[in-house]
Design a protein around this nucleic acid. Structure first.
Lengths: 236, 236
DNA sequence: GGTCGTCAAGAACACTGTTCTCGTCGAGTT
DNA sequence: AACTCGACGAGAACAGTGTTCTTGACGACC
């Protein structure tokens, strides 16, 4: 029988089992995260098992294989980044549009700098045979949705001048707008996408060390370019 | 004695040896590139050796180890990308600034889409223990230097309005301008950097599959955003 | 109390990067 | 022309990896 379905009589014992199992899951991921931060993307199951004082094959009771563990870490990373951005944005008064915009961008940068290995896992090289499972697409879209939400709250249709959006791109944007309940104009969504791309370009360059020898005032550099993007997206 | 120092008498034989050795180098890298494209970042020396019909230890006659082979591939990738951008830009009349700008950006995208694994090698996750050797910094800077060269050729100091560049960032930009002979204004170099960041954000998103389900008109999307950036950088 | 599922251990397999030794063969020197 | 020395490739070996299978043991349920 499935222990999840057992009734309330022996529920406490069964849920204790489930709880210790869940804690084991968490501990494995925790140790794996430490190894990821120390060693980079090539995570060793045996090393994780060694750190936990168990034998490698014991890990297979909790994860079907290395890829599954990596997937779990990837999902956690997306959710961590999404949560950081969501919390930061939620702490700003709704009418302070520029404040919300900056809060999202700063949260992404801070989280990425605090968790470089996990950031690399989700925004770096896609791993070889790995295909993103369905459960990653929702958390992965969180940041751009937050930016789009700020863009939607901007009153009016005013935007800084720029080249017209070509029709095929317009069609893509229209489709995306129709899929979601939001109703922001296509031109503004286009600018939000530009900001989204630029934001992660900025963060990736910094996290991956590409600014190391050319920009030392990284925080100011980031703030300034986020301001540039906010203007481009039509924020007041 | 060092065969490189032998005089012209036996030079032909010696250079023949050197030539076959260099060809071996090239062939190893070629096979490794194929494996990289097929398998992703985890390159197997033994698989490369198997494909070449030699024993794994024989590879160590040509490369001190796996990291050295990877480094060689990275250097080649930087140089390939840089050469593609340079050639494309050189084919445009000097006075067609916008044409040169677009040529660089399109070349980067084309090269990246044609060599996704190598692009991932240089613009994705930095590999774990690997530190970029000195020989990579010059080819790595090629693209941004090309963009800066176009920016320098723009007559006048006119730029679309935007937030002021903060002083610490200004200092970084001033230092970079002083190091190189170019003399473009700091504000413009700042916009060039914005375009550089956005360009690679755009290309990385596309190559790494992040646009897969949201934008189908990728070429038009790219062109449009490059135009947006060209405007922002002050191109006429 | 008996039965069954879960857990950890251990051994095993195939694979990896790397090092070492050992013949072989060709070019340079005397 | 004989000798020497270097480069070359093969092969074995070592340590490490992901993964699978089997074997006991222990706790929860009928």
């Amino acid at each position: 029988m499935f222990s999840k379905l057992c009734d309330t009589g022996a529920m406490s014992a069964s849920s204790l089992r489930a709880r210790v199992r869940s804690e084991m899951h968490q501990e494995i991921k925790e140790v794996a995260r430490r190894h990821l931060a120390a060693e980079g993307a090539n995570l060793s199951l045996r090393a994780v098992a060694r750190d936990m004082g168990i034998v490698p094959s014991a890990l297979y009771r909790y994860f079907p294989g290395r890829d599954a563990l990596l997937t779990a870490l990837i999902v956690d990373a997306y959710e961590g980044l999404g949560a950081a951005a969501t919390d930061a944005e939620a702490a700003v008064p709704r009418e302070d549009l520029r404040g919300r915009w900056f809060a999202v961008c700063r949260a992404v940068r801070s989280w990425a700098l605090a968790h470089p290995a996990e950031y690399g896992l989700i925004y770096g090289n896609p791993v070889p045979g790995y295909v993103a499972p369905q459960e990653t697409v929702v958390p992965a879209a969180k940041v751009v949705l937050l930016l789009a939400a700020v863009g939607r709250d901007i009153p009016g249709d005013a935007l800084p001048a720029g080249p017209p959006v070509p029709e095929p791109v317009r069609a893509d944007l229209r489709r995306l707008i129709d899929e979601r309940p939001g109703d922001l104009p296509e031109e503004r969504l286009d600018r939000v996408f530009a900001a989204w791309t630029h934001l992660f370009g900025l963060v990736s360059f910094e996290v991956f060390g590409r600014l190391d020898t050319i920009i030392v005032a990284r925080a100011e550099y980031f703030e300034h370019h986020v301001a540039l993007l906010a203007d481009l997206a039509g924020l007041p």
